[in-house]
Computed example of a mutant assay.
Amino acid sequence: MDAGTAVIARSWRAVATVDGARRYEDHFRVTVLPALRALHGFHIAYLMRRDDDDTVRIHVLTLWESMAAITRFAGDTPRAAVVEPAARAALLSFDETVEHYEAQAMASRSVAETAARAPGTDAP
Score class of each variant (00 low, 15 high):
T114M: 14
S11P: 00
A123N: 08
V7E: 11
V60H: 06
D26F: 08
R109E: 15
M48S: 13
V83P: 00
T114C: 07
L91E: 07
A86R: 12
A6S: 14
V30K: 15
H40S: 15
T5W: 00
F73P: 07
T17M: 01
A16M: 07
H43M: 10
H59D: 05
L61V: 12
A21S: 09
V56T: 04
R29C: 10
F94A: 15
H40Q: 13
D122G: 14
G75C: 04
E99K: 12
G20F: 07
V56S: 02
R79F: 07
A103N: 02
A3D: 12
I8K: 06
P34S: 04
M67W: 01
D122I: 08
A45E: 01
T55Q: 10
H100V: 09
V82K: 13
V18T: 11
W64Q: 07
E65A: 09
D54Q: 08
L92K: 11
F28G: 01
A118E: 15
I44T: 13
L91W: 03
T55C: 05
V56F: 03
A14R: 02
A74N: 04
D54A: 11
P85D: 09
V32L: 14
L92V: 14
T71V: 11
V18N: 07
P85L: 11
H100I: 08
E25N: 07
R109I: 14
D26C: 03
R37Q: 12
S110Y: 03
A6T: 15
L33V: 15
V7S: 04
V82M: 09
H27L: 06
V32P: 01
V32W: 12
R13L: 05
D26Y: 03
